[in-house]
Amino acid sequence: MGAVEALGKLAPVVLAFGCGVLLARRKVVPAESSKVFADYAFLFAVPCYLFGNIYRSDLGALFDWRAITGYAAAAALAVVLIGVLAWACGVREPRGIALRVMAAVQVNTAYFAVPVFIMLFGNAAPIFPVLLFQVCVLSLVIISVMELGRPDRRGSRGRQLAAAVVASLLTPVVIACNAGIVLNLLSVRLPHAVLDSFAFVGDSASPVALFALGLHLGGSGLTVRGTSLEEVSIIVFKCVVFPVLTFAVACYGFGVHGDWLRYLVLIAAMPAPQNLFIFAQRYEVGVDMSAALVVKSSVVALILLPLLLQWAAHRP
């Protein structure tokens, strides 16, 4: 796939995202309403899309364990690198290190990767295993560090940590993925009317999620001049270093080739997760930096995606 063709496939992504920015900047749609659109996408539309597609998928082909293990190994290596770099740069507070790890290693799946993969490949199925790994492993590690490092912690550490873990596992996205897998494995037959209803709602997930992200960007604004060196470093790692690291580990370390190698590189190139800002607010650490990283890495990812797609297409 050439750069021109890739740009053509990404045109709907840019349209939905750009329309949100434009309407927010012109105050046609209040930027504050981005939370409403985002909640609709995250709590309802995206889970509907994930459930229906996982239920219909061939799980044997969907869960390519070599590819997933390669991605997990690359993510683990990236976590160590960011942790060491943060410590070397003077960050000593565990929550601060955890926040930087989340920004540099976790990816924006529901709001960004799902719509981008639908536009590029017509299917977001390759994202599902990475999404489960991210939510059930990476997020739990981040939550554990954040909870145990809270200065206002009350009660036992175990009880607070357990509550945080349960809350993470009970998010609609995780429930939808697990329900789709269980019903698929049990060969439970669902009526076509039910599946069509999930598909109808799920089809709205991509444009609404991108529109919400555009509204947020249009309302918050984007100032390049005030970007700190640390922000630049994290964005470069997230959008350039991590995809290249994923390619090297998956390809040469685990023998992943073909479509799955391209999928993993593109997933790794997705911007910082939108819930980074939510975590920062909840745990009162790096709030301004988190908001800037989500917005700026999203813009950089949109610019680099056609180039990364073309680069990955010519790999073995």
Score class of each variant (00 low, 15 high):
313 A>G: 12
255 G>F: 01
166 V>H: 06
172 P>W: 03
98 A>V: 04
203 D>G: 13
24 A>P: 09
27 K>T: 14
15 L>C: 13
21 V>P: 10
275 N>K: 08
203 D>M: 12
263 Y>A: 04
87 W>G: 08
102 M>P: 00
73 A>N: 04
2 G>N: 15
143 I>T: 15
281 Q>I: 04
159 R>V: 14
154 R>C: 12
267 I>T: 03
55 Y>P: 03
226 G>Q: 14
50 L>I: 14
27 K>W: 02
147 E>W: 01
261 L>T: 06
80 V>P: 00
62 L>R: 08
128 F>T: 09
216 H>F: 12
120 L>E: 08
29 V>A: 10
240 V>T: 09
139 S>A: 12
4 V>R: 02
188 V>A: 14
188 V>M: 12
83 G>Q: 06
280 A>I: 07
190 L>T: 05
284 E>W: 00
263 Y>W: 03
101 V>S: 05
29 V>S: 04
185 L>E: 15
291 A>I: 00
315 R>Y: 00
125 A>E: 14
31 A>P: 05
217 L>C: 12
171 T>R: 10
161 L>K: 07
110 A>T: 09
63 F>C: 02
291 A>S: 11
143 I>V: 15
306 P>T: 11
22 L>S: 08
126 P>W: 13
224 V>D: 01
142 I>M: 04
315 R>A: 13
23 L>E: 11
243 P>R: 07
82 I>A: 08
42 F>S: 11
312 A>Q: 04
288 D>E: 12
300 V>Y: 04
252 Y>I: 02
80 V>A: 11
